[in-house]
């Protein structure tokens, strides 16, 4: 796990969450902007998966549980597509809020993943 990249990813997830939450509560339907924000979150997660798979080969191994790390990563990878699918099926303001909830959840999970990778004995 590359620490600065993970912090950027966390920032993007929180920003996407705020964006979708604000637009959703303002009554906007899911749009290219909000679904695109979730697509970006998903793209960064896929990149994180690649980094996590390669990093141990370069001497950057997780200090915590590998199984727990990948459980979080796989769960996080499921969220944006699920929320986006929902947004496409039900086009109303609450679907935009759901997009935001998914982005925030990804943020929390990424933070937990960083803890598992870098902090021993949690």
């Amino acid at each position: 796990m590359i620490e600065w990249y993970t912090w950027v990813q966390l920032g993007v997830a929180v920003a996407a969450g705020l964006l979708c939450l604000v637009l959703g509560l303002a009554g906007r339907k899911p749009s290219d902007l909000t679904i695109g924000a979730l697509a970006l979150v998903e793209l960064l997660l896929v990149a994180q998966l690649v980094v996590a798979l390669l990093a141990p080969a370069f001497g950057n191994a997780p200090s915590g549980s590998v199984l727990e790390f990948y459980t979080y990563l796989v769960s996080a990878l499921l969220l944006p597509p699920a929320a986006a699918l929902w947004a496409l099926l039900e086009r109303n303001r609450w679907s935009t809020v759901v997009l935001g909830v998914a982005a925030f959840s990804v943020g929390v999970m990424v933070y937990r993943m960083l803890q598992i990778w870098t902090v021993q004995g949690l």
Binding site: E90, N92, W94, S95, V97, V98, V101, A102
Partner: peptide
Amino acid sequence: GIGRVLVA
């Protein structure tokens, strides 16, 4: 409506 968010 908002119940959907609860489900999410």
